[in-house]
């Protein structure tokens, strides 16, 4: 079947199978930031935004994105750099394989929660696994990033 969607701001039209996963679709279209870490919706590495909402692209059919807008890290490079700089500042991108999915979900969290507590952050990002860092560095980085953002907004 043919689907048509907006991928990182660009209109894309392509043939997909009924069982084509959004993950494979976006990678085929050059969005290599989107990673696969499991087949069971457990790791969060494949997180993308579908009409602004975070979804696991490994368990979303490409067909479902027909007519929607899909955002991957490639489409939010400035944000990625802004958040990523804090991760890098902590050394919290060890292998970095989980970083794109994490950053996508942080972007979603920013839209959904204002001034989240540490516990809320842990809960929101619980589905983003990382095997390298033990999460502490990521939490420091995200905390620093949100604080900095808060400071900039307040003044």
């Amino acid at each position: 079947m043919e689907i048509q969607l907006t991928l990182n701001g660009k209109a894309v039209k392509d043939q997909v199978g009924a069982d084509t996963l959004l993950l494979d679709f976006v990678r085929k279209h050059g969005c290599y930031s989107v990673k696969r870490g499991c087949e069971t919706s457990n790791c969060g590495l494949c997180t993308v935004l579908l009409d602004g909402k975070p979804v696991l692209s490994c368990s979303t059919l490409a067909a479902r994105a027909d007519g929607c807008s899909v955002t991957t890290l490639e489409g939010v490079q400035e944000k990625a750099e802004a958040i990523g700089r804090f991760l890098a500042g902590e050394g919290a991108e060890q292998c970095g394989f989980c970083s794109p999915g994490l950053i996508m979900n942080v972007i979603a969290m920013e839209q959904e929660l204002s001034e989240p507590s540490e516990e809320e952050i842990r809960e929101y990002l619980a589905g983003n696994l990382c095997r390298c860092t033990g999460y502490m560095g990521q939490m420091r980085a995200i905390g620093n990033y949100l604080n900095r953002k808060g400071e900039e907004q307040n003044g």
Partner: peptide, 21 residues
């Protein structure tokens, strides 16, 4: 000194740097 890793920005911005990419 806690300098950031040389490849850090490529990693956090999702550049195609891994085997499958």
């Amino acid at each position: 000194s806690p300098v950031p890793k040389k490849d850090s920005m490529a990693l956090v911005t999702g550049k195609p740097v891994y085997t499958d990419d």
